[in-house]
């Protein structure tokens, strides 16, 4: 249902979007709308919140209540929306820099609270909007415009970070593995608590060019060739997993959600 879902959920009068040709973000944004369509949510009760960066511009194209906030702060804005109106389905769209550098503290605390927000991290391993600086997920020794001699920082594993901080649903997929991505987002949205889906994107313009990764197609092929589903990985040797990365459902362990726990406090006073 490709074009139907775009027609239904995109503000088509705002298209074409601002992303570069070959950017993975369009695929991921569409995947979100497909998951929403499958779940049949009331679109008037969906709020999509984003921060600053390439990925965060997605909110402008999506026909829901949309909130394009400040750099790194999408999660605390979304926390306000969700706690104030728990009937709303709140989705956060953020990037690797937005979510794990400037917004890193907000991320771990949103995970810890298990508040009902589904966060989709568009991870393209670079700060695209500002022109290709290295981010917390730029692989070690890769280049960025602020790492001309190679990045010496160790990269964050966003999914594992979220899982250990307390997110109750965590998964990773890529722009290439769209069907898996859609099903992870769908499951994330079904989880009452905090869900994080890491969507590996591709930035041919900056990360690709700086690191000689080829064009957009080459970069999607790289995702196809290097992603290993977590279920398959358990049967593979460490040697055969060398240089690969895992995709799939990493964590699914529901716990009481934050706003419903708060409601219990309010209910104590209603009874009295």
């Amino acid at each position: 249902m490709p074009s139907a879902v775009v027609d239904k959920f995109f503000r088509t009068n705002k298209l074409p979007q601002i992303w570069c040709p070959g950017c993975g973000h369009g695929i991921i944004t569409r995947a979100i709308t497909v998951a929403v369509e499958k779940l049949g949510f009331d679109r008037d009760k969906i709020c999509v919140v984003s921060g600053i960066g390439c990925s965060s511009r997605a909110t402008g194209y999506l026909d829901f209540d949309t909130l394009h906030t400040t750099h790194g702060r999408a999660l605390p804005f979304a926390t306000g929306v969700k706690l104030a109106n728990p009937d709303m389905k709140v989705i956060v769209i953020t990037g690797d820099g937005d979510c794990t550098a400037i917004g890193g503290n907000h991320l771990i605390h949103a995970c810890r609270r298990n508040i009902g927000i589904t966060t989709i991290v568009f991870n393209n391993n670079i700060y695209g909007m500002t022109g290709g600086q290295y981010s917390p997920t730029t692989p070690k020794f890769d280049k960025g415009t602020t790492a001309p001699y190679g990045n010496i920082d160790k990269a964050f594993d966003i999914s594992n970070l979220a899982a250990s901080a307390g997110a109750t649903y965590v998964g990773r997929s890529t722009a290439y593995h769209t069907n898996l991505l859609i099903s992870l987002i769908e499951n994330g949205l079904k989880n009452d608590g905090f869900s994080l889906i890491e969507a590996i994107s591709s930035c041919p313009t900056y990360y690709g060019r700086k690191n000689k990764k080829g064009d957009a197609v080459n970069m999607l092929e790289w995702q196809k060739d290097h992603a290993v589903n977590i279920s398959a990985a358990s049967k593979m040797t460490p040697e055969s997993l060398e240089g690969k990365f895992l995709i799939g459902e990493f964590k699914n362990s529901p716990e009481p959600e934050y706003t419903s726990e708060y409601q219990k406090i309010i209910d104590r006073f209603n009874k009295e």
Binding site: G80, L83, A84, N85, I266, R268
Partner: peptide, 30 residues
Amino acid sequence: PCVGGKFIQMEDEIASMAAIIGASLTGLKS
């Protein structure tokens, strides 16, 4: 909570300011 309202202690001052804006957008005085 006694008047059906919501309180949250956020992780920092920036987040608190962000949260009240989000809440106000849903119609709650914050």
